[in-house]
Design a protein around this nucleic acid. Structure first.
Lengths: 404, 404
DNA sequence: TGACTTTAGTTCGAGTCTCGTACTTAATTG
DNA sequence: CAATTAAGTACGAGACTCGAACTAAAGTCA
């Protein structure tokens, strides 16, 4: 029920500044007059806000390039655009077989991406992540960029405090240690989030679910996880564990799952289930493996049949999730991407059959377009969440950081 | 991503006033000094806000009754409390076998409830609802009460605009007609909402889920529906249809459902499934019917076995929902209430077995305490949502309505 | 070429709101 | 009956938004 904090006039200003920033981010550059229309703020107010943002380095007057209106009547406006320069957000991903980093600027442009494979020797390589974080922050600093925050995506249950790793089956990192470590390293506020949540956030801001306020993201490798976006925000649940869909009792009820039970969804649609059914070996990465399966499917009808069965089970689970959450778009990521329509088509068909009522519209099923960097990108975007919500004031930060 | 509207100083004030109102509602009466502490507002500001609210009739100085501090040192404070008097919210429920109304005051006290059975002749009796609405509003007006808004709960899919009934299998009321009709009648803003959503809202504000920011409500009669509360707010989904859980493929996969498919959850745990399994007839209302079944179960182990099986299927579905949504509390309503532990105990056991991971905590399973009026009560509470969110200013309303 | 029109952006004063400080008020304590 | 303590109020300062008036920069048209 709303934020439980008092509102001073200063907060008022931050909120309106954030409103302008959001407008610029979502609808693109605009003159002050246009901004006043879009935000319903008074022209004078917009003028003041833009001046402040300009001084903070958040926006610039985009030197009238492509923005010249052709046959305009009066004085031409000077379009204002988000500036990519000083402010950046850092997204990191710690996974079992790789670590990744994405640097995103305020304008939404990716400034740097790096992925490093990690030796698969039982645990996760936290050192690889901190090393990557150190390198990337150094490079940002060298380029005169200023971090507004960083977020680490991990394949684990993370508490609602956005710091504490509560359960990490494959990682050796429980507790708030990871957040603390990275924070010390990058010198900016750090969040830790579940990777599926981050990927969902990425898809809704940059990927296949742009424009959808209600989206569902399904990550698929060995395990299956979901990220839920409702009203543009992540649904986290009481402890922060929402989206644990891998062990829903769906699909082949006799399939043995890694968790020790039978009938879990991921035992039917996880990568291992597919490999077992088609008799193929696991390659270095899930994406390579899935690509190999897709290649084989082109020749082998048996493989296609397996994928059809998997698609049907995917559809079954999605029908359930669609009923519960009513998303506008469902994005499939992970190993489903290389398999494409081989899985998507039967999933769509099953989804249609199982929708609860005639009035319900089938959510659009799409493949992720962000690749392996989805989670890190979403993490970087998360770092800007406070800025666009008006909780973090770039103007006030000048003291702690010069601009270019 | 936040509200996309500009913030004026007037809105600022409304927000802070709402903050005070919420504090009074949730934490009870308090002196101005205490309020200042609770809200982090300045003492002076609280003074101004309270004065405004007092003038509007929203609060009074609670004549120092039970609120006297015993051995206090300085000047005693005068506790301020929400006033029940002029401002009330109206909740209505239109169902297949009854219509109900609840009048709730600003302080959260129920001022009036009325339930009227309706003849079961095929369709829903919209006239009964409008009649009830007319009577109740008349009585409110006579008592000098002023409606801040009304909400109608219906067993139907309602669009996100909170007005349009999109799909009502048993009702003859599609489109925005119902909202328009009631609005003309009561002379206050009217919303239409799904009944499970309203009941969930009621439980989280007045019932078994008070204090839980994340709750799940399961309504059970012939059909099964869910209401989802995340971060204190209803999760509605893209079209407003979230919570349609009755047709998830769970339980006995061969069970025939009214929707024409097999294996729907409500075909396993709905009232008809129970009656068929125990060979008992349906009585006038689901609650009476369930009470009869519970009575029989005390003597007949066969009936108990059936209810155990139902409980297990309930637990199976809840395990799935708990994984997806991670609620803190799950409240069972409808016909589950009379059955009580007969269903709850096996549901808990199954839920424990099926939880996705060791870190997850089983949500607390509770029975609804609000009875048949849950939906209407939640609807009434919804009418106050704008007030407590700071979107509706009671102070400004003086013009249109005197006070007692 | 030069007045006229049209739109963009700024300046300025008024109005609101919150906040901190100082002050008044009302109780208890010794 | 002071002294103490805490609640509530009055008041001025500061921050912010807003509307209106004003200036700036283009095109239009005679």
């Amino acid at each position: 029920m709303s934020a439980d904090r008092p509102a001073s006039t200063e907060r008022l200003r931050r909120q309106n500044a954030a409103l302008v920033l959001r407008s610029l981010r979502q609808l693109g550059p605009a003159t002050r007059a246009e901004l006043a229309q879009r935000t319903a703020l008074a022209k004078a107010t917009v003028g003041v806000i833009v001046a402040g943002l300009e001084e903070a380095g958040a926006v610039t007057e985009s030197s009238a390039e492509s923005e010249v209106r052709s046959g305009a009547r009066g004085r031409p406006g000077r379009p204002v655009a988000l500036r990519g320069e000083p402010w950046v957000g850092l997204g990191l991903e710690l996974n079992v077989d790789y670590v990744a980093a994405v640097v995103l600027d305020l304008a939404g442009q990716v400034r740097l991406t790096e992925t490093r494979p990690v030796a698969l020797d039982g645990g996760v390589d936290e050192a690889a992540l901190t090393g990557l974080a150190r390198d990337v922050t150094a490079r940002c600093r060298a380029a005169g960029q200023v971090l507004v925050g960083a977020t680490v995506a991990v394949p684990a249950l993370v508490r609602g405090d956005d710091r504490t790793v509560a359960w990490a089956p494959n990682l050796g990192v429980e507790g708030p240690g990871l957040a603390d470590g990275v924070e010390a390293l990058v010198g900016a506020p750090v969040r830790v989030l579940n990777d599926a949540n981050c990927a969902a956030y990425a898809e809704s801001h940059h990927g296949a679910a742009v424009g959808a306020e209600h989206a569902l993201y399904l990550t698929g490798t060995v395990g299956i996880g979901a990220g839920i976006v409702d009203r543009g925000e992540l649904v986290r649940g009481a402890a922060g564990f929402a989206g644990e869909v891998g062990h829903m009792p769906i699909g082949d009820s006799s399939a043995r799952c890694g968790c020790g039970r039978q009938g879990c969804w991921e035992a039917s649609i996880g990568l291992h289930a597919v490999l077992a059914a088609v008799g193929m070996p696991e390659l270095d990465t899930p994406l390579e493996t899935a690509a190999a399966v897709a290649e084989r499917a082109a020749l082998d009808p048996g493989v296609r049949a397996v994928l059809t069965r998997v698609g049907e089970d995917v559809g079954l689970g999605l029908a359930m999730l669609a009923g519960v959450l009513d998303p506008e778009v469902v994005v499939l990521g992970g190993y489903f991407v290389p398999l494409g329509e081989l899985v998507l088509a039967p999933a769509r068909a099953t989804l249609d059959r199982r929708l609860a009522s005639a009035a319900q519209v089938r959510p659009e099923l799409r493949l992720s377009t962000l690749g392996i960097q989805a989670a890190a990108l979403g993490a970087a975007e998360q770092a800007f969440a406070d800025v666009f919500a008006g909780d973090l004031d770039l103007t006030a930060r000048e003291a702690s950081a010069g601009e270019a």
